[in-house]
Design a protein around this nucleic acid. Structure first.
Length: 641
RNA sequence: GCCUGGGUAGCUUAGCGGUAAAGCGCGUCCUUGGUAAGGACGAGACCCCGAGUUCAAAUCUCGGCCUAGGCUCCA
């Protein structure tokens, strides 16, 4: 019998018989591993342990201790859901039910479910786990597979497309249930320690909005009840951090019905934070050689016809007739900035030219997409555009990346970085695209940044580097960005005079350090759980007199701290009550003043981390505050010292 | 835009055919307190909007608006 060679995670090679399965490989490595094998990863794909391996394959053996094991277990949990559903709703048509990053879902048709029904299904699932049904792989011919699903067009479609040409195909069976499936699965339903169904929603068949809508049930599963409880607890805590909830509780912003959807109102507390963010971005931009500009909110649509946005996005623009002429609220700031650039002639010596503006834009996003501050109709971009010579791209992008990384560092934020390259429909020649993409890649690599390559995901006008943040519920949102643009300079016929005294086309770079203030604010609220660093906190210090007798002294202390956002608590409450209120509002520092302090001319400091220090000179506290705020430090650290 | 839930005092929610209830917040008074809720009294609601069913609608039906979770989209 001939042999083939496979490679293992530690880089070693192993010879096995041709036709060997994943499980055979595991036994070859060691009998203990062989018997523990649940599944395998072959060339990056999760497969059943009974799948054959091929010559040169990279093999990872999956056991109960592997990272992939939870995925396998959740896939099996999806089958258990389907089994339970079919028992209670025999007419339900199963479509597809894969594992996800933190659970599974199953899309089904032909049932009318609501959230209350999930309880019963869950109970049925529990009983399937208790029955500890063996999960067995069955190989069936194509014809037999089609016969299994005489009236389930989803499964038939999967056989025709995903499993095109496969014969035989695999099924997995457990008790009274079977499902067309590639696997892998755990050995028995009893191996699934804990399951729960989380919510019910809908999805288009194959994610195409022209297709029918299926009912999607989300759930998750773990090896043990304890793991599940921990997950549910963490999920609950995350919901407590939701920026919409905190925005309400901390009086930061609101989006009332009367103002229209996706049109947020910033209250004084929220606006103070936005102003600090804006000042910070402005100082970074000024240091980096940007010049502030300002453009109006309303323009002739002429401008967007010229930029090309009108053709592509007219349905998402807010338009208005003025004296029989069409105007529109700006959906982008770049055409305005390009037009400023175009108002005079430039020498190559002047480049790069860099403009920035906190520019409010208006986009009529799909109604179902609006969500708190994450996706809105009116938002402000910390928008910068720079115009440079092609050979300056790398240096400029580098500078922008440095600024973005400084911002992330200041807030202690993590972001996913992606390089998005040329899409199918694009403008600009091959040469400039290749040059630009390689410059972006070289910036990322020389900075040692981990990034995902997203081929074909660039804008039609140029490649880009995007930074994405996760919200409290684990959803990803785009934030800071650097985008090259070969289109706009062309459309606006922007030029500069080169050394050769001829006209040349500049490259335009769009960049934002935050993305939009709205979304960045959302990220910060959730990231800090409302406990903003002192420099951002709407109220930095609250003075709590123990009784009304100290009110006079409290106001004198406030005056000594008038560089900062300080208030005096003058409600006639007990000290405990005052502390509780300040604590719940996440005020970084409380100064507690009683008779002793008033007499000594000192203050007693408590921070929101519940640490205290008495007998502090106001002067010392003020100096500390100055350095903490100017240093944009993350946590109140007076009491660390 | 699509699917499924939901909209009741400033906030969080209960009530689900007989015109409204609680906690917090707010106001007044008492209390003047030493590191996370002192007490009493009081004010506060076109029960999202419009139409329909009914002797009677916050409650049932339909439409609209807003909202939540997905899906689709995102210059």
């Amino acid at each position: 019998m001939s042999e083939i060679v496979v490679s293992l995670p530690d880089g070693s090679k192993l010879s096995v018989d041709r036709g060997a399965t994943v499980e055979d490989v595991a036994y070859e490595i060691g009998p203990g591993l062989g018997s523990d094998t649940i599944a395998g990863v072959v060339d990056g794909d999760l497969v059943d342990k009974a799948d054959p391996v091929h010559d040169g394959a990279e093999i990872v053996i999956v056991t109960e201790d592997s990272d992939e094991y939870l995925r396998v277990l959740r896939h099996s949990a999806a089958h258990v859901f389907a089994q339970a559903l079919q028992r209670q709703y025999p007419d339900a048509k199963l479509a597809i039910g894969p594992p996800t990053d933190d659970g599974f879902y199953y899309d089904v048709a032909g049932v009318d479910l609501d959230a209350d029904d999930l309880t019963d299904i869950e109970a049925e699932m529990e009983s399937i786990l208790d029955s500890d049904l063996p999960i067995e792989r069955e190989i069936r011919s194509r014809d037999a597979a089609f016969d299994t699903y005489p009236d389930n067009r989803f499964k038939r479609e999967i056989l025709e497309e995903e499993a095109a040409g496969e014969d035989p195909v695999s099924f997995y069976a457990q008790g009274d249930f079977e499902d067309l499936c590639q696997g892998p699965h755990v050995d028995s339903t009893g191996d699934i320690g804990a399951v729960t169904l989380l919510n019910i929603s809908s999805a288009y068949w194959r994610g195409d909005e022209d297709n029918e809508t299926l009912t999607r049930v989300y759930g998750t599963a773990f090896e043990s009840e304890a793991d599940l409880d921990q997950y549910l607890k963490r999920r609950e805590q995350a919901q407590e951090r939701d920026h919409r909830k905190l925005g309400q509780e901390l009086d930061l912003f609101s989006i009332p019905d009367v103002t229209g959807p996706g049109l947020p109102l910033y209250h004084p507390n929220g606006k103070r934070i936005l102003d600090e963010l804006s000042d910070y971005a402005r100082s970074l931009n000024l240091d980096a050689g940007y010049e502030p500009v300002e453009t109006p909110h309303l323009f002739r649509t002429e401008l967007w016809k010229k930029s090309g946005h009108y053709d592509n996005y007219v349905d998402d623009m807010f338009l208005q007739d003025v004296n029989d002429e069409e105007y529109g609220l700006k959906p982008m700031n770049c055409p305005g900035h390009a037009t400023i650039f175009d108002q005079k002639s430039w020498s190559y010596r002047d480049l790069p030219v860099r403009y920035f503006e906190d520019g409010k834009v208006y986009r009529k996003e799909q109604r179902g997409e609006l969500s708190g501050l994450s996706r809105v109709w009116s938002f402000t971009i910390d928008d910068g555009h720079l115009f440079c010579r092609p050979e300056q791209i790398e240096a400029e992008v580098n500078q922008v990346m440095d600024a973005i990384r400084e911002v992330l560092g200041t807030f202690g934020l993590d972001a996913h970085v992606a390089l998005a390259t040329r899409p199918e429909k694009s403008v600009g020649g091959d040469e400039i695209w290749e040059q630009a993409e390689s410059q972006l890649r070289s910036v990322l690599e020389s900075a040692g940044i981990d990034y995902d390559l997203e081929p074909g995901d660039g804008a039609f006008y140029g490649p880009k580097i995007d930074f994405a943040f996760e919200d409290a519920l684990g959803r990803k949102w785009d934030g800071p960005t650097v985008q090259l643009d070969f289109n706009m300079p062309e459309r606006f016929e922007l030029t500069y005079t080169g050394e050769d005294n001829a006209d040349h086309r500049p490259v335009m770079i769009h960049r934002a350090l935050y993305g939009s203030y709205e979304r960045f604010f959302m990220v910060l609220i959730e990231h800090f759980d409302g406990k903003f660093p002192t420099w951002l906190a709407p109220e930095q210090v609250r003075i709590l007199p123990i009784s009304d007798d100290q009110l006079g002294y409290a106001h004198r202390v406030k005056n000594e701290l008038d560089d900062f956002r300080v208030s005096v608590e003058d409600r006639s409450w007990t000290l405990n009550r005052k502390i509780r209120d300040a604590q719940e509002e996440r005020v970084p520092y409380m100064l507690i003043l009683g008779g002793d302090e008033a007499e000594a001319g000192t203050v007693s400091v408590r921070d929101r981390k519940e640490r205290e220090r008495g007998d502090v000179a106001v002067e010392d506290f003020r100096e500390h505050l100055r350095s903490e705020v100017d240093g944009r430090r993350l946590d109140p650290d007076f009491i660390d010292e």
